[in-house]
Structure formats: C-alpha cells, structure tokens
C-alpha cells in the first residue's frame, strides 16, 4: 500500500511536470485523491518557489579565493568569465583582481612570493624594515661629521633625545655628551682637512656652557655635574693644546681663546666642586638632633665664573 502510494505520488509529480493539473492527475487515482492532493499541492508550491541565487560578489570572491589557492597565473591564462562579469557588474572588485595578478607574478619570479599574499605579514615586514632602516641610519649617523649625508640626522637624533629627556640633570648630562661629540668631530675634521671648524668649536663650548645653565639640578647631583664639567673642560683644553701647533696661524688666536676658556672653566668648576664637598662635610658632621626637621635641599642654580663665556 505504502509502496504504491509513494509510486503514485511520484508518477503524479512527473505528470504535473509534463503539464497536467493536480486534479487531472488525481482523476486517475480517485481512491488516493484525498491523501495525495495536499502532497501534490505542496510539491507544486515548492517547485514554484523563487530560486535563491548567490550574489555576484559571493561568486567572485569564491573564484578569487580559488585562484589564490591554485596560484592562477593571470599573466598567462584567461581570467574566468564569471570574474570578468562580476567585475563589470559589481563595483569594487577590480582591486582584488589586480592584487591577485601582481601576487601571481611575484610568486613566479621570487621564491618567497607567497609571503606577499599575507597582508598582516607584509605589514609586519614593512614596519620591521622601516624601523630597521631608521635604526641603522641613526646608528651609522652617530659616527658622521659635518659634510656627511647623515650628519643632519645625527643632529636631529640629538635634538629628539634632548626633547625626550625631562629631568634637568639628564639634560645637563646630554649637553656634556653633545659637547664631547663636537670635540671629536672637530678633531676628525681637522685630521681630514687640516682646517679648524670654528662652528664646531663654538658648539662644543656652548653645549658645555648650557649644561651648567640647566635649572633645578638637585644639590647632591650638582657636585657630580661640576666634577664632570671640570674633567671635560680639562680634557678639551688638552686636546686643543695638542692640535694647536698644526692649526693655521690665522686660527691660532681662536684656539688660544678656547684653550684659555677651557682652562678657566676647569678651574672654576674645580673650586665649585670643592665648595660642594665642604658643604656636604659640614652637613654630615652636624648632629641629627640639632636638625630634627631637616629641610629638603633646594635645587641650586649654578653659574660659570667671570670670563667663562665664549666670545665670538
């Protein structure tokens, strides 16, 4: 019975497909009409459902994905018609196709072409390369002297470094560092060209001068700074004295002035440092009970002595 009704249903569906109506079909099987009618009507309804169709974007992106997986070579083979059609009909699909083309060429020519198929990896590599180049340039520029291509980068790096330092003692130390660098550059330029770069000489002395003019340096660090300045000024004096005989006669007066100034600065800083030491010694010998509410030491404003300024 069940076998029969399943077969009858199928036969009716076939006949309806050929053009008969439900009632015409059922007229042949009146004993099953009540049972078959709702099923045939449902079958008809399902057949009349509008066909769901995928979007062009969906088909295009599927084909592009397949293309990527299969490594289609757009340069040598025909692009599937569906993609061309969808590119024509759907805005925004030209870009992915171009991308795929170039990737394909990359992978053919270069063994690591597949790397370029991963945007995140490309981005990471680009960022890494960018920072590597910057880091490399900054490192190389550290040894540059005036006239070198990378010398401006060296100065910019110093400025950035200075701007990113927020405490006064740190800034003062950077000034000393810059002063030392200018001296090294001056010596190198002198060795290369046998000429005295007066700009570097001026910068060297100015940086040292500015180091002491940084405000808000705590007293306990001020003595360290003065000791360093004493040492640097003495060192600069020695270096300048060594190159003086080789300096052209016209530049000797400037070198002499600079040597004299370094000498005075060194002496001034030595005295200043001694004063600090004495102050510390006095404080250390004072009994704690006499200074129960010892005030926090105030930052000291330091100054160079007379004749320690660079004169043009």
């Amino acid at each position: 019975m069940e076998q029969n009704i399943e077969l009858l249903l199928d036969n009716c569906i076939d006949e309806i497909r050929k053009g008969k109506s439900v009632d015409e079909c059922l007229a042949n099987y009146p004993q099953y009409a009540n049972q078959l009618k709702p099923l045939l009507q449902l079958a008809e309804q399902i057949e009349n459902l509008p066909l769901p169709n995928p979007s062009f974007e969906s088909l295009s992106s599927a084909l592009i994905n397949i293309g990527k997986e299969m490594e289609w070579d757009a340069a040598t083979t025909e692009i599937p018609e569906a993609i061309v059609t969808s590119q024509r009909d759907v805005k925004g699909f030209a870009a992915p196709m171009k991308k795929r083309k170039s990737f394909s060429i990359l992978s053919r020519r270069y063994p690591f072409g597949n790397v370029f198929r991963r945007p995140k990896l490309v981005w990471a590599l680009s960022s890494f390369l960018f920072f590597a180049v910057i880091f490399g340039a900054v490192t190389v520029s550290a040894n540059s002297v005036p006239g070198d291509i990378l010398y401006p980068l060296k100065l910019v790096t110093e400025k950035v470094n200075f701007l990113l330092t927020f405490d006064s003692y740190g800034k003062a130390e950077l000034r000393l560092n810059f002063s030392d660098k200018r001296l090294n550059e001056l010596v190198e330029v002198f060795q290369q060209s046998n000429t005295l770069d007066t700009t570097l000489l001026k910068d060297m002395l100015d940086e040292a001068k500015l180091a002491l003019e940084e405000n808000e340096i705590p007293v306990e660090k001020a003595s360290i700074l003065t000791a360093k300045l004493n040492h640097i000024s003495a060192y600069q004096k020695t270096v300048l004295e060594n190159i003086r005989p080789a300096v052209q006669t016209s530049d000797r007066r400037i070198v002499d002035e600079a040597i004299n100034m370094c000498n005075m600065r060194s002496g001034w800083m030595r005295r200043m440092n001694e004063e600090y030491q004495e102050q510390f010694n006095e404080q250390d010998t004072t009994p704690q009970s006499q200074t129960p509410h010892r005030k926090k030491q105030q930052p000291k404003r330091m100054q160079w002595g007379p004749d320690c300024d660079w004169m043009e």
Binding site: L59, A62, G67, E81
Partner: peptide
Amino acid sequence: NDNRAIGKLCEHFYSKIYRFIY
C-alpha cells in the same frame, strides 16, 4: 589545472551548491 575549465566549472555548479546549502 586548466584555469579556464576550473572557472567555467565553478560558474556552472556554484548556484546549484548555493541552493543546496541555502
């Protein structure tokens, strides 16, 4: 690996599969 044939095949069965899944 004939790309044209692959493209044509995809075009041909894509809608069928879509409806089957839909």
